[in-house]
Design a protein around this nucleic acid. Structure first.
Lengths: 114, 114
DNA sequence: TTTCCTACTTACCTTTAGGTAGGTACTGCC
DNA sequence: GGCAGTACCTACCTAAAGGTAAGTAGGAAA
């Protein structure tokens, strides 16, 4: 039974969307090309450093594409690649599950640890 | 536009299955009650400390149920709750996405960072 | 009485993720 | 010359996740 290194592809998915912010970033970019400053605004609470870091990783993984409009002041935007779109689709059910069970999870956590 | 704290439920899902091991643990438990030692065996590479920790968290979040058979030597097993089953179902697409794109992701990562 | 077995617990260390505070480049405008 | 505006970068720090190695409980078997 050699199911050792990832029988189910979840390890791969988690490698791509793992971390605290990536899912949120993807969510806020899915409707079309979005400027850096806009993403920063929408994903409230994220620091610039971390945002850029995550964006770079997503670009490196072919999930996002970065477009530099060569202007001053700088004008850059990010958009989903076709590959990125398939990921966002696969994310939908989990997304809905989370939405439906937000209260349940919150309540369970509150009961358990507070 | 107040999409600040999680418009999409992914933040909730990630809170539940976040971390390096939980998806794998869930995967290996989904077929029925599984003893601690069996999980440890199947999820190769995980340490006892971390495994117990993750199992406890999953139990606390009502995803797993722990059954202590009150024996010596100890005999304990873990199984999905109905709630946990809905989670595993929502996880399927991402699971498949990962399986289908394992090569692509690996190649992209290799090209980018190595 | 010692050993075995299993599911844990504890103390400690390393690695990684994330956060803060500042700085840089470049051009147009005043 | 000095400032505004945008997308970054750098150095540093903290917190959390994860890993290692040891120990504990307690009845059954030897």
């Amino acid at each position: 039974m050699d199911t050792t290194d990832g029988p189910c592809g979840l390890d791969v998915s988690l490698k791509v969307i793992g971390g605290k912010w990536k899912p949120l970033i993807l969510y806020h970019i899915q409707d079309g090309p979005t400027r850096f400053s806009q993403v920063k605004q929408r994903v409230a609470g994220i620091s610039e450093k971390v945002l850029i870091q995550q964006l770079r990783e997503l670009v490196a993984m072919d999930v996002l594409i970065r477009r530099d409009h060569q202007r001053v002041p700088p004008m850059v935007d990010y958009a989903l690649t076709p590959f990125g779109k398939t990921l966002v689709e696969a994310l939908q059910p989990l997304c809905e599950w989370g939405t439906q069970n937000r209260a349940h999870v919150a309540a369970t956590l509150a009961a358990a640890s507070g």
